[in-house]
Design a binder for these strands. Sequence first.
DNA 1: ATTACTGCAAAGGCTTTGCATTGTA
DNA 2: TACAATGCAAAGCCTTTGCAGTAAT
Lengths: 156, 156
Amino acid sequence: MPHLIDDAEAMLRERGFKVTGQRTLLLQVLAGQTNYLDAEEIHALAHMQDASISLATVYRTLNLFAELGLVDHRYVEPDHRREVFRLSEGPEQHYLTCMRCGARTLIHTDLLNRMAHELVRRKGVSVVSACACFTGYCAKCTEELKAAGEFTPPVE
Amino acid sequence: MPHLIDDAEAMLRERGFKVTGQRTLLLQVLAGQTNYLDAEEIHALAHMQDASISLATVYRTLNLFAELGLVDHRYVEPDHRREVFRLSEGPEQHYLTCMRCGARTLIHTDLLNRMAHELVRRKGVSVVSACACFTGYCAKCTEELKAAGEFTPPVE
DNA sequence: ATTACTGCAAAGGCTTTGCATTGTA
DNA sequence: TACAATGCAAAGCCTTTGCAGTAAT
């Protein structure tokens, strides 16, 4: 875990960026999370360690990290309103977001990767990032809605 | 094609909504397009027929149509900034959007549908909509970048 | 005659940006 | 000492909303 942060800082220096307290702090915050968080959530966590860090810096830093490939950034909520971020180590994660309770159900992405590969092979394009957003109801809400007879059968 | 509009208008009436000139016009505009368009593009097209139609009405109408299932609405651009709309007849379409020239490459969605079905089967969830956004370079730009030696091999 | 719908302009929510200041190298 | 990075506040961008007026049933 500290490894990751050291590597990231080395990368920053290598590319001529400065290693500031804010950048180190944000790396620590991100390293402590496995889920995707939005900028405000990340800011709130960072703020506990350094009350002076600004939201603007959080945005600027996350965007820099994304450009450097240090973080994944995606839209996960059904409304695609806010972007979410996560350190980019580890496997890609995709979710189904529940329209009723907001719960996220993790999705295996082997099929998504297959789609990307097929695209490359068949169309000659290059895929830089793939994002899948599923919207619907989580298992619990699906049950409850069925039990209540309020269930309009969805697309599938 | 007029069929489609008549059906939509019948549906509006059935559900207690009024069939206004603006709604009919927007149905016509949408019926004349196969691609996804954003609200401003749709407004521009409608504006040519009725200079008094407002962007607010376009948004309200598109959202109503989406709730009624008359239009698909999704985020297609890499930045996910603006939502795009299309009449929901016809098969789902997904794209890879080129980061260099903006071109959209159509993607077959059988694998995406398989993903959705697997999700339902394995996790007990219900899938209402699935959205896949691929970002990268189109075939032409991939070629050109390779030729220019400017190509950093992407994720795939 | 109702009551939904529209246009306008203002507000909302998330993100970016200009500028003076601070801090890294 | 240079110059990138920061904080603050303002602006940007897309979308929604309140309200008074208009139009569909």
